[in-house]
Design a protein around this nucleic acid. Structure first.
Lengths: 114, 114
DNA sequence: TTGCATACATCGTAAATCTATGTATATTTG
DNA sequence: CAAATATACATAGATTTACGATGTATGCAA
């Protein structure tokens, strides 16, 4: 990976977990690398998740009980598939709503001219 | 102040300087407290800037040469008015464009269902 | 066989905002 | 008038979050 996101990294803060939860909600079980590729694709190469961001984030979501892990052997490789829990679905809904509202609000502030 | 923003604080990261620069661009010279009140108003009380966020951010923008300070005595009080520099205008334009693009991209990612 | 893509992991760092706290004046309200 | 609230600034320390760098290893294509 090792390629920089188009955006200042601070902008992504607070949105990563919402994005991951949303993708899992839409696509069922996914594994880490697959998530990075889908985010890359959906964002037209503008958001390039780093391993140092995604894997710790996934582990945290698991520790919080929002996702569960399922291990699958692909040849000699091990792949970790993640799935939303019931609690994860709830949190995903909340985070999605919050993010959408935030985007609305910021848009209002940034476009307004009193 | 001491009232929490409606949003998880992380969401605001990366947007604060863009917001401040944008407000200064639209309104000419402004002082700190005035900025907090205008953000509060424009966001329908959803974004409540804390002193501990705004003042350090303003000092940083000043150190970076993006804004200049002008002191005014209001009775026994001192008020610090901030104004965009030429460089500040450029950075404001860039940050505004970046933020708008980021919002577009995030919206796409969060609403998409492959 | 050399490089690139896939696939995971983690340590230490940097950046940004918030919490808490402090100082002080001005205004409003009971 | 006293008390509470609003105005107005400031900063030290804590927290959070994502990233950079690095490491391991397999699979595939040039």
């Amino acid at each position: 990976m090792y390629i920089c996101s188009m955006y200042s990294k601070e902008l992504l803060k607070g949105t990563l977990s919402a994005i991951v939860l949303k993708l899992l909600a839409e696509n069922g079980k996914m594994y880490g690398y697959q998530i990075t590729q889908m985010v890359k694709q959906l964002s037209d190469n503008k958001i390039l998740l780093k391993e140092g961001s995604l894997y710790p984030a996934l582990h945290k979501l698991k520790d919080e009980g929002l996702i569960t892990v399922e291990t699958e052997n692909i040849g000699k490789r091990v792949r970790h598939y993640y799935t939303l829990t019931q609690e994860g679905i709830k949190v995903k809904d909340a985070k999605e709503a919050e993010l959408k509202d935030f985007i609305n609000t910021i848009s209002k502030v940034i476009t307004s001219q009193l």
